[in-house]
Nucleic acid binder design. Structure first.
Lengths: 108, 108
DNA sequence: CAGTATCCGCTACGATACTG
DNA sequence: CAGTATCGTAGCGGATACTG
């Protein structure tokens, strides 16, 4: 499938709107193999602040990419996972990863 | 090819470093079908300022993604195009575009 | 045409403290 | 554990004017 540059611009921008933000792609990367608890994500992304983590998760939730599953326990437990629709992003994540891997080899 | 999440993080971050910046992906999108002059890119991206355009082009040049071809004419003519290595990004751009196209259908 | 050079506002992001 | 609530700031990006 080929795209006219003019039209394609809109499509690319759409994707960028959903995946934009400093942390979203990285968050999704850590969700791609299964659900993660809030605290797990914090541990996996040591640089991120709680504020940013929750903010970006909320936006991904609003865009229908991730689910927020609340377990009514004590202590509280919340897990984030891909929605079925969110799974369509996996090839995107995969190619971003592969390109980066190749680029590291290329520049060393 | 599957990646361990831990390692993969580095790869994804690498890609993000190269493609990061508000305009880079869009600039590359317009270069993907052939060389473009500076003024063409300005016209194709009406929202971008000259400063940002040149800045992002320079960074892409430094990363070996695009070539800057100067024609010693009057008036001056400069064309930007993918390097051979930069062409490896085309599949990435293509998938970002396709996903966005599908997402637009999905949300309407 | 293809840039540079300044100046500056905004907001995305961070640090910290607190809560159900 | 899983969040809120404030407050503060760096630096990304915009506006404008100028140049080879």
């Amino acid at each position: 499938m080929t795209h006219e540059p003019a039209q394609g611009t809109i499509f690319v921008q759409t994707t960028l709107k959903v995946l934009g933000g400093k942390w979203k792609i990285l968050i999704l990367w850590h969700l791609k193999d299964g659900a993660r608890r809030f605290s797990e994500l914090k541990r996996l992304l040591p640089e991120i602040t709680e504020k940013m983590l929750i903010q970006q998760l909320r936006e991904l939730e609003r865009d229908g990419i991730v689910n927020r599953n609340i377990y009514s326990e004590v202590p509280p437990k919340v897990e984030y996972s891909f929605t079925e629709y969110g799974l369509t992003l996996k090839p995107v994540l995969q190619i971003l990863c592969s390109w980066g891997e190749n680029h590291l080899k290329h520049i060393e």
